[in-house]
């Protein structure tokens, strides 16, 4: 077996080489590797942030259009809301009865009775609304009754006739006993209706 005889200088060189390699590995482990990892993280974060930033810029760019749409939609709702009666000291009936009688009187419709029918909560629909319904009982010809419906529905686009019952009168072919149920869309809780309805259109954002 050949013997490995190294000079002192060679041993120093070898030791220096091994030491350098160890130092190199230590530097890689303690400094370079964390730096590479942080750099990768930084790049990934920058990429993600840039995507978010691009998305944010697009959203911000639509801001004016969104604002315009919001203003228009709120104006539409405000216009609709003028057809949704509000209670007077908790009472809906008085004003509704007055309205019905005002429509029926010029049409020669004899209204015998206007009374509250129910307040309908529509399950599965919008929680903000209910339907306030009254039953109207009287006597009239079918033509007059049709005209009455026309006027009521034309004056209020949110009013609907949900029941009609017509029974002829014995010996008077032109006049019938009738009853109908008419419903108004109302706020489920008038105090909790959207706050923008209180604002004037010019103040709306």
């Amino acid at each position: 077996m050949p013997t490995l005889s190294l000079t002192k200088k060679q041993i120093q060189l070898l030791a220096g080489g091994v030491g350098g390699a160890i130092a190199f590995l230590v530097i890689i482990q303690l400094s370079v590797a964390p730096m590479v990892k942080t750099m990768k993280d930084n790049r990934a974060s920058s990429r993600a942030l840039r995507e978010e930033l691009d998305k944010a810029r697009k959203v911000v760019g639509r801001g004016v259009e969104i604002q315009r749409n919001l203003t228009q939609t709120r104006a539409d709702i405000r216009a609709f809301a003028t057809n949704m009666p509000l209670p007077v000291l908790g009472n809906y009936l008085l004003a509704r009865e007055q309205q019905i009688r005002a429509v029926c009187a010029p049409l020669n419709i004899s209204v015998e009775n206007v009374q509250e029918f129910d307040v309908l909560k529509v399950a599965g629909w919008n929680e903000l609304f209910k339907v306030y319904r009254v039953r109207v009982v009287g006597r009239a010809g079918v033509n007059e009754l049709a005209r009455c419906f026309h006027v009521l529905q034309m004056r209020n686009p949110l009013l609907s006739i949900s029941a009609i019952n017509i029974v002829p009168l014995e010996g008077i072919p032109n006049i019938h006993n009738f009853s109908f149920v008419v419903g108004w869309l109302i706020w489920a809780d008038p105090d909790q209706r959207p706050s923008f309805l209180e604002e004037s259109p010019s103040k709306a954002p």
Binding site: I77, F80, N126, V142, L158
Partner: peptide, 23 residues
């Protein structure tokens, strides 16, 4: 707001035209 407006519009559009019906 759009959901609210759509609900009201839906109520309006779905009502029966009682005048046309009776005529």
């Amino acid at each position: 707001a759009q959901s609210l407006a759509a609900a009201i519009q839906g109520w309006k559009d779905s009502r029966l035209d009682a005048y046309r019906f009776l005529r």
